[in-house]
């Protein structure tokens, strides 16, 4: 009894520590976002100031709302595109044996090894050559370089581990590969799909370097660039209060996304109705 009690307590203690460490800097950001002026330089642990000025200023000056919309558009498109290309490719890579499969997987991995800064110049030439400069398509296009290899790999791994029997049954029923993917595998792969989709979404949502380079107007820029554009009254002044307010605004949709999709994340094989 005592043992169970200690176990439960230490478990919740662990949970508390994890949550505290994860959330504290964000909490501090919220705290900071309510401050302004010299108050920013003072250390406080509990809210002492409460003013929404920073939020109002972020939302009303510049084109933050527009940029927010751009970010949603870009990140969503990137996820849809990457998942679509990756699910079909993962099926081919995981369930069909052909020559050079290992090599192909290796090449896909190699693609994601190049440092972003190094492909910047070449990508910029492409973006301009295709006439994508300063459009959201430039970002959707360039973000595939880091989302696609990742999603292909993760989905391939997961698809390879799905039991053989379900696919066999489908084949016996005369199902085509497309049907097998959409009707048989997809429902089983929710945890993997949602997880990779979410990670790809966040990666696209947070990307800064490409976004800064491939767009050149307030109407096409995304949120990370918009945050970097927040500036004080003069060159050297860093508007911490507004930066933190903007960061809070940017982080909220992601938290909401996680809360919405978390049922899917936990829907493993057990929930799929098939026991492995």
């Amino acid at each position: 009894m005592l043992w169970t009690y200690t176990k439960t307590t230490s478990f919740y203690l662990l949970v508390a520590v994890i949550v505290l460490v994860s959330v504290f800097p964000f909490y501090y950001a919220i705290l900071t976002s309510f401050k302004s002026g010299t108050a920013l330089f003072e250390i406080t642990y509990l809210p002492t100031h409460f003013s929404l000025d920073n939020y109002i200023s972020v939302l009303t000056t510049g084109s933050f709302v527009r940029n927010f919309g751009n970010s949603i558009l870009v990140a969503t498109s990137v996820v849809v595109l990457a998942l679509f290309l990756a699910v079909t490719a993962a099926f081919a890579l995981a369930r069909v044996s052909f020559r050079g499969r290992g090599l192909l997987l290796m090449t896909i991995l190699a693609v994601s090894m190049f440092p972003q800064i190094a492909v910047l110049a070449g990508l910029f030439e492409l973006v301009r050559a295709f006439g994508l400069f300063n459009t959201p398509f430039a970002l959707i296009f360039s973000y595939t370089i880091f989302t696609l290899p990742f999603t292909v790999w993760v989905l391939t791994t997961f698809m390879r581990d799905l039991p053989v029997e379900i696919e066999e049954a489908a084949i016996v029923d005369g199902a085509s590969p497309w049907v097998i993917i959409t009707k048989v595998f997809m429902p089983l792969m929710w945890p993997a799909l949602v997880t990779t989709g979410l990670l790809a979404f966040i990666a696209a949502w947070n990307e800064f370097l490409f976004a800064l380079t491939f767009t050149s107007s307030s109407e096409t820029r995304t949120v990370p660039v918009a945050i970097a554009l927040l500036s004080g009254a003069s060159q050297y002044e860093i508007p911490w209060g507004r930066i933190m307010a903007a960061s809070v605004i940017v982080t909220v949709p992601l938290v909401v996304l996680v809360l919405i999709f978390q049922r899917k994340i936990v829907q493993g094989l057990t929930a799929g109705g098939v026991k492995g």
Binding site: I18, P25, I202, I243, S247, T251, V255
Partner: peptide
């Protein structure tokens, strides 16, 4: 808790580094 844990990952690196 799951949502809370994702917060660090969700904050743009540019911002979290400055933070």
């Amino acid at each position: 808790v799951r949502a809370a844990i994702l917060i660090p990952w969700a904050i743009p690196t540019v911002v979290s580094a400055r933070m």
